[in-house]
Design a binder for these strands. Structure first.
Length: 651
RNA sequence: GGUCCGAUAGCUCAGUCGGUAGAGCAAAUGGCUUUUAACCAUUGGGUCCCUGGUUCGAGUCCAGGUCGGAUCACCA
């Protein structure tokens, strides 16, 4: 691997060359251009960051007074000198301030703005002085002559420290009048566009640091600056942490590198420990470790951290994602839903200040008006109730057997029919288009699964004449269902497993996307929930829920299975499915069975996808916009080419 | 992996029917010096993503590729 030259990393252009030149000139004036520190003052009570000064009561008070004076003036009229002078006396009496920050405006003229990333504060320098520069020679030697010279060499984006006094301008903005100027660091690259920031989403994510600089210029993308997105994220997480702490939970950290990847159905990242000579896996879920801790007596325990899954990327999936997972002894799934609701409402309120989140683009992309997600009310539906409720939304009016109701979902024959219909529908055409072209769909239905003795040509003919196939052949559905099941249907160990699988498939395919408002879906098939207890009233149903918001799964919780024997058997089933080719089936964890054998209290647990929740609260449609450094393909450097030797001809 | 869309100056973007490569910002030089989104004047700045094709002539049309975005499938 060749080591790239500095010029390949920071490609020279007129901008960088100009900055190089100004840096050299600055070095002549100040010596070291990358000094080690700058001490800020504390007139505002703490360290004077720009934000602290902006928010300092006295400063706000004087700005308010000036605003009042200005309100009494006509357009373009300057405030009376005596009144302004009085305010400036008050400001000057506050004493000398020393502040530091990045130049957010080009440096032509007397005024520039400095930013600390959050706020901007105006800074003023006068050519006639007194304007000194502070040399970076370790002794802070003062050079009375060259302050203005240094001021003129500054570039947009440079970091400087200034010492001076506060004053207010005619337009009513409190500013610092610079008396001493110290150079702190150079921006060798030009700043992002001051109006648009970085527009290309790829570059925003790759060069997040520059994207964040644009935030300090108040550049917004879809309503929030990038910095605000991550401030909300931080507040949400702190809020959740505080809520859990206040309710007696203890925060722990469990292994990220594990000898077994289990606790969820997912493909792990694999790595290798040289000294131990064993493979290790990046964890796909902390679940089994946290439940070991409930065995050990941590009755309420949580972890907020990353999980890693070696699967596809999408607007909803990053290879590493943050999950809050917690467990509470002696609680069941219903208690957990109550608690989850409280926790989320509290955290959402702390993060955004309100319980409603506005989302401007609907999941299905059909409606332009924003959706308001209301965290004030969480609905609870069984999976079957949800299917019946939302089936109509699909406009599946042409079901040959009529309209579905909940009894269909108990009847294996009806379920098989629905499964056939659904699988073909998915195969044929994008979901959103499918219902525009029911005739075509039905035709494809026939073509793919033509029972014996049916004539292809006849079907083509009927289609040409645009006669509804369902009308022509009222019994088509049963014929096809039968044919499909004979030849194409997946095999299930028993009828209950088949029913469960089909109900889940119907739910995932057709219903999820319509769950916009917070909705707990309950009654998951036990067969797909190997770590969950059965419902005491129905052995085929797991005491499990998933929370859906805006069509996304945001949380997943259940009454935790704590019977070591049953857990062992469920793992064995999973291993059998693994043998059968299901790479995501769970792996048996012997030590976990041992832990359960010590006796685990009945408990409820939940995992909450933090990234997705942040997406909802910040109106972002891509998970990559709520992760500071999302996974990206490595940047490709262009192979070295001959230097640009094309002589430019004049004339 | 499928489908659709995109890539032009450091940045944000125009570029008509295929006929000399454009603007604003940023930069340089000079002026101005209590400005408020971007003061005034002048100047420099281009591998139009890559490769090939059609054509007298390609930023523009065609094919293939690279990278990215949206969306679908798997997954949380």
């Amino acid at each position: 691997m060749s080591i790239p030259a500095l010029e390949e990393i920071i490609e020279p252009n007129d901008q960088t060359e100009a900055r190089k030149a100004s840096l050299a000139a600055i070095a002549d004036l100040v010596g070291n251009v990358y000094p080690n520190k700058f001490a800020r003052t504390n007139i505002s009570g703490g360290e004077d960051t720009l934000t602290a000064l902006k928010q300092f009561d006295k400063v706000a008070e004087i700005e308010a007074k000036m605003a009042e004076i200005k309100a009494s003036l006509s357009e373009g009229e300057r405030p009376p000198a005596d009144k302004k002078d009085a305010l400036n006396e008050e400001l000057k009496a506050l004493g000398t301030v020393r502040i530091a920050g990045r130049l957010t405006t080009p440096t032509r003229g007397n005024f520039v703005h400095l930013t600390d990333g959050m706020s901007k504060l105006q800074v003023y320098a006068n050519k006639k002085g007194p304007l000194a520069l502070v040399k970076n020679d370790g002794a802070d030697t003062i050079d009375e002559e060259n302050g203005w010279a240094l001021w003129q060499l500054l570039d947009h984006g440079d970091l400087i420290g200034v010492e001076g006094y506060l004053f207010i301008t005619n337009t009513g903005e409190v500013s610092v009048h610079v008396e001493k100027l110290q150079f702190l660091a150079k921006a060798m690259l030009p700043m992002p566009d001051k109006m648009h920031g970085i527009a290309d989403p790829e570059l925003r994510r790759r060069y997040r640091y520059a994207d964040l600089i644009a935030s300090s210029l108040q550049v917004e993308h879809d309503g929030l600056t990038t910095r605000e997105v991550f401030e909300r994220r931080a507040k949400l997480i702190t809020g959740m942490r505080r809520f859990l702490d206040d309710h007696g939970y203890i925060e722990v950290e469990t292994p990220m590198l594990t000898p077994k990847a289990t606790g969820a159905a997912a493909t792990p990242f694999e790595t290798y420990h040289n000294a131990l000579d064993i493979p290790l896996y990046a964890r796909i879920a902390p679940e089994l470790y946290l439940k070991r801790l409930t065995v050990g007596g941590f009755e309420k325990v949580y972890e907020i951290n990353r999980n890693f899954r070696n699967e596809g990327l999408s607007h909803k999936h990053n290879p590493e994602f943050t999950m809050l997972e917690f467990y509470c002894a002696y609680m069941d799934v219903n208690g957990m839903m109550d608690f989850c609701e409280e926790l989320m409402q509290d955290a959402v309120l702390k993060s955004t200040g309100q319980l409603q989140a506005s989302i401007t683009k609907e999941y299905a992309g059909t409606d332009e008006s924003p959706i308001i997600v209301d965290f004030g009310m969480f609905e609870r539906l069984t999976m079957k109730q949800a299917i019946v409720r939302y089936w109509d939304k699909l406009g599946s009016r042409n079901m040959s057997r009529g309209t579905i109701d909940e009894s269909w979902l108990e009847n294996v024959s009806q379920l098989r029919y629905l499964a056939t219909y659904m699988r073909l529908k998915k195969e044929v055409i994008l979901l959103s288009d499918a219902f525009e072209t029911d005739g075509g769909l039905e035709k494809k239905f026939f073509m793919n699964f033509l029972p014996k003795g049916w004539n292809r040509d006849r079907i083509e003919e009927i289609d040409k004449e645009r006669i509804s196939l369902a009308e022509e052949f009222p019994s088509w559905a049963d014929e096809l269902t039968f044919s499909y099941l004979e030849n194409h249907a997946p095999k299930y160990p028993d009828v209950e497993a088949e029913k469960g699988a089909i109900v889940l498939e119907l739910f995932e395919s057709f219903v999820e996307r319509f769950l916009i408002q917070p909705t707990f879906i309950t009654d998951y098939p036990k067969s797909i929930s190997p770590l969950s207890k059965a419902d005491p009233r129905n052995p085929n149903v797991a005491e499990r829920f998933e929370l859906f918001i805006n069509g996304m799964e945001v949380a997943n919780g259940f009454s935790e299975l704590n019977d070591p024997k049953e857990q062992y058997e469920r793992f064995v089933d999973q291993m059998a499915q693994r043998e059968g080719g299901d790479e995501e089936a769970m792996v048996l964890d012997e030590d976990y069975i041992r832990a359960l054998s010590y006796g685990m209290p009945p408990a409820a647990g939940i995992g909450i996808g933090i990234d997705r929740l942040v997406m909802l609260l910040t109106n972002k449609h891509s998970i990559r916009d709520v992760i500071l450094f999302p996974h990206m393909r490595p940047e490709k450097r262009e192979g070295e080419k001959g230097s640009e030797g094309e002589g430019e001809k004049e004339v």
